[in-house]
Structure formats: C-alpha cells, structure tokens
Design a protein around this nucleic acid. Structure first.
Lengths: 204, 204
DNA sequence: CTTTTGAGCGTACATCTGTAAGCTAATTTA
DNA sequence: TAAATTAGCTTACAGATGTACGCTCAAAAG
C-alpha cells in the first residue's frame, strides 16, 4: 500500500474513532455533527467528504464495525464455554464483559435500533439477525428443536440479553451483578419453556 | 376556569399535539426543534416559553401522558380477557391494536428509552415499571409464584412485548400477524419455564 | 523529469437554531 | 372603573451547521 493510501486510511480511522469516542450516555450518533467529528479527528470539516459521502455513511460503517466486534467477542466467549460449564451463564458473563470494555460499540447498536433512519434500523437488525440465527442453529442441533421453535427461542434469548444490556449501561458494577443473575434466570425460563413446548409437539 | 386559563390550556394542548403529530418513523422527539413545534401549533417561537421551560419539559410531559394512555388501553384489554379466553393472546392483540391506533405514543417511549437524556430514560423506565409490577402482582396472586420469580417473569414478558412492538412499527398488517403469533409463543415459553422453575423450588 | 491526481485546507454563504427584550391588548383583580 | 397581570407577538442577535468553490502541494503515474 502506497504512502498516500496509508495516510488516507489513517485519517479514516481517526474519523471513525473520533465518532466512537464522542458517543456516551448523553450523546448519540445522530446528535454528532460533521464538524464536531472532523474537529475531534483534527481535520478540516470539508475534508470529511474525502472519506464519507455524509454522516450517514460514517454511521453505517460504525454499525457494521460494531456488530462485527460484538460477534467476535461473543464467539471467543463461546469457546470458553466449550471447556465446560453452563453455556447460558458463561455467555451472559461474556456479554457483560463486552459491555464493560466497549460500551460505545453497544450504544450505537442499541440506539440506532430504534432510531429515525430506516437504513440504520435495517443495519442493526441485520447484525442482530446474525446472533439469532447462529443461536437458532445451535439449539436446533444440540437440543433437537423444531426450526420454528428454535427460531422463536433464539429470538427471545437475544431480545432479553440485548435489553438487559441496555439497562446495564446505566448501572454500577454491583447492580449489574444482580441484573446478570436475573437475566440468567430469565434465559433459563425460556429454555425450559421451549423444552416443554417441544415435548408437547412430539407427543401427538 | 376563567376564559384566560381556558385559552392557555388550549394552546398548551396544541403544543403537545403538534409535537406528537410531528413524530414518525423518521422523526424522533429529540430531532424536533422548539421552532418547529411552535410553528405547527401556530404560535410564535417565543410564546412557547409561556407553557414550558424548554423542549425537555415538553418531552417529559409527553412521556408521562403516553405512558398513561398506554396503561389505560391495556387495562381495557385486560377487562376483555376476564370474559374468558387466553390472557396472553388477548393482551398481545390489545397491544397490537394500541400500536396501530397510537403509534407515536409508543414511539416516544421506545425511542427515549434508549435516548441521550437520563431524565427521559428514567421517565420511560418508570412507566415500564408500572407495567412490570402490575403484571408481577397478577402472576404472584393467580399462579402463586415466588416474588423473585414473579418479578423476573413479568420483566421478561414486558421486555418481549415491548420489543416486538418496536419491530411491529416497521411492518405491514400481514407481517404483524406472524410477529404476534411468534410473540404469543415466546410468552408461553416464559410462562411454562417460570412454572417449571417454580416447581423446582417447591420440591426441595 | 513532467504531468496528473487527490487529500486536506481556508473562505464563504445561506439556513436554522434558541432565546433575550420589550410591546400590545385582553382578561383578571381590587 | 382603574390597575395589574399575562399570553402572545415582533424584532433582533449570536452561534452552529452543512457544504460549495477553489487552492496547495506531495505522491503517483507516465
């Protein structure tokens, strides 16, 4: 890669990072202005356009990147679970760790999921869909669920986890522990309940 | 009430209604400007301050009002359920009807739940908490759940319903029906699962 | 070496924002 | 009836925003 392309990539990263860094509980992506992001990245406002068509394009990049990050970390967690122990417990713990270390990655997904841009909502939905279908296949294979049941179950699990994540963002470590315990209980409810419904289908 | 106070109340309503009417899938409350709302309500921008300290105060009013509306409609639905039939099914159907007739009421709750203002998030959380505790008491009484289990169960149910509502906003009637069916299945999972966990506690 | 390309900059402009200040006129109070 | 209150208005201003235009100058291409 030429010197020029290298520098360009560096600036592009600076923009993405600047945007991520400006996110917080009080600041959503849609409240960021092009000028603010450019300022934080130390470039002139008009130079922004050398990298992205507009703020929308930057945001979608962030959603994609964020989804990828999240999935990679969860996958690592699942590997840990293979060594033994409750899959549910370990997955929840992993998720909480991700939240702790990358809150802004989760924030943009969370916020834009119910945001005002259809493109953003679709992008987030796509990321979440990855989680759901990975999980559905897993349950179909290991617990022998009907595809329809597996799907419903996976969706419920992901919904509960995601939602708990949203609550956790506003909490201190101690309260998060309580939340995590309750989340585990809820996930077990869904698992047990799915099992029960499955048996009902089989005995007929 | 004097003529003066009456007129003032009317203008205040015009402001609230104007704000609600400007909400849509593409427009969140936080993206509305004071001037826009005033324009829609046919008053001068500066007159806004005769009714609300700032946009925040208007928004919180809307959240409170919206939560109340939602709860009233759900309560009506529950009365319908007392005549017989599945509580879950009827509640879901009621919820979908509310969504259809008052989408913007739901939108502000949905969006501000993960918004950038702590005050808004707290206000929405308070509204949701009403649903949860009403439901928890109901299950504690009718199904004899442990308080802790009842709470976890109620929270899971509300989470799933709320989340399905968010998805439904982007859907056409036909797809909503499928969504509603799946939601019912998920709610049954939770109910069954909670029951199973309850028995586990009892037999020890 | 010469030419072309393009990342980044500075200037500029029209548009929108929140809100301060002070006036008007109708209602309310005394 | 006279005085006080106040909802709503007009005018005004400072600040921020997105982006069009044209320049520079170092890297890439020929």
């Amino acid at each position: 890669m030429g010197i020029r392309a290298q520098q360009k990539e560096k600036t592009r990263r600076a923009l993405v990072d600047a945007a991520f860094n400006q996110l917080s509980a009080e600041r959503s992506f849609s409240s960021l202005s092009l000028r603010e992001v450019a300022r934080e990245a130390n470039i002139a406002p008009t130079s922004f356009y050398r990298h992205f068509k507009d703020m929308n394009e930057l945001g979608l990049t962030m959603v994609d990147e964020g989804g990828l990050t999240l999935r990679q970390m969860m996958r690592k967690g699942r590997q840990r679970a293979e060594a033994g122990g409750s899959v549910i417990r370990i997955s929840v713990d992993t998720f909480m760790e991700v939240l702790d270390s990358n809150p802004n990655v989760f924030r943009i997904l969370l916020h834009e999921r119910s945001g005002t841009s259809a493109a953003f909502r679709a992008a987030v939905a796509r990321e979440i869909e990855h989680f759901i279908s990975e999980l559905a296949h897993y349950t179909e294979a290991t617990a022998g669920r009907t595809p329809m049941l597996a799907r419903a179950q996976a969706e419920a699990l992901v919904t509960l986890v995601f939602n708990a994540g949203a609550s956790a963002l506003d909490m201190k470590r101690a309260d998060r522990k309580i939340l995590a315990d309750q989340l585990v209980m809820q996930l077990r409810m869904v698992a047990k309940g799915a099992e029960a419904l499955q048996h009902k289908v089989e005995h007929r």
